[in-house]
Amino acid sequence: MTTPQKLPPEDLFLKPPVFTSVAEERRHRKERLAATMRIFGRFGYEEGLAGHVTVRDPETPDHYWVNPMGVPFAHMTVDNLVLVDGDGAIVQGRHQINLGAFNIHQQIHQARPDATAVVHTHSIHGRAFSALGRLLDPITQDACPFFEDHALFEDYTGIVLDGEDGRRIAKTLGPHKAVILRNHGLLTVGETVDAAAWWFVAMDRCCHAQLLAQAAGPLTLVPPEIARLTRQQIGNHLIAWNSFQPMYLQIAQSDPDLFGSGD
């Protein structure tokens, strides 16, 4: 019989920054959003006009910063980002947005006040796994953070053109960190852009791993009680935020132009 282990103490980890002003927090969120798009470009997550990340504005929480339509992920800068209101109207920015993205993200933000950021792209392994119409299995330690903490949206009806489809996706997501959109791809949420982005990268890699493992033979699963314990240990916001920091530091150093004019 396995003896339950203690959870790792939080003082072992870095802590997200605390801000002294709304302007400082807004700038931070925009920088992390632009950096996420650069990282996603390197990972090959871009697919035409698809792929979007939204983050709440810290001063006006029913307004959202989003990457614009048609700007390559690899070229994204803070200056490119667009601010939209709760109806999808552009408040600030010179580019158009993907309204299909807005129809999904806005409904999730409304249903989940804790979801500061929402991430969705058409990554190859996420799309491939979504076609199986099933949840991820706890086949590795890295998959355990998603054990009993992701959902499957099984009702693909084409491009999301109105809020009703977005509401149904939000309802399926429920309190979880992620949802697999059947025949579509993956979507993740987080208390920060960093956490939401990390969950997306981690989930896409878990999809890749399970596709490889299933092709090789029968799966050996982590027992449920151990999968739950592992989720408690490494499936929280703080771990996700910490896990994103090496990727952020790397892109910030290699692509300093992502910070734009600094306004």
Results as ranks from 00 to 15, higher is better:
residue 159 I to Q: 14
residue 256 P to C: 09
residue 256 P to Y: 10
residue 144 C to S: 15
residue 190 G to T: 08
residue 189 V to D: 06
residue 168 R to S: 10
residue 119 V to C: 08
residue 233 Q to K: 02
residue 8 P to V: 02
residue 211 L to Y: 01
residue 3 T to W: 03
residue 152 L to P: 01
residue 245 Q to N: 05
residue 6 K to C: 06
residue 75 H to G: 01
residue 191 E to L: 07
residue 55 V to F: 07
residue 15 K to P: 02
residue 174 G to D: 12
residue 149 D to Y: 07
residue 261 S to I: 00
residue 17 P to T: 09
residue 253 Q to K: 11
residue 66 V to N: 12
residue 99 L to V: 07
residue 233 Q to L: 02
residue 246 P to F: 06
residue 132 L to K: 06
residue 196 A to R: 05
residue 214 Q to F: 08
residue 89 A to I: 02
residue 72 P to N: 15
residue 44 G to R: 09
residue 143 A to R: 05
residue 77 T to Y: 14
residue 231 R to H: 02
residue 91 V to N: 03
residue 152 L to R: 09
residue 208 H to W: 12
residue 204 D to H: 04
residue 71 V to E: 08
residue 167 R to V: 00
residue 23 A to D: 11
residue 154 E to G: 07
residue 131 A to N: 01
residue 6 K to L: 12
residue 147 F to I: 03
residue 254 S to G: 03
residue 60 T to C: 11
residue 78 V to F: 07
residue 154 E to P: 03
residue 245 Q to Y: 04
residue 9 P to K: 06
residue 225 E to T: 01
residue 29 R to K: 06
residue 249 L to W: 02
residue 170 A to S: 03
residue 84 V to D: 08
residue 90 I to R: 05
residue 92 Q to P: 04
residue 79 D to Q: 15
residue 135 L to P: 00
residue 136 L to I: 09
residue 120 H to Q: 13
residue 215 A to H: 07
residue 189 V to S: 08
residue 44 G to P: 09
residue 207 C to E: 01
residue 64 Y to R: 13
residue 132 L to P: 00
residue 99 L to R: 10
residue 64 Y to F: 15
residue 116 T to V: 10
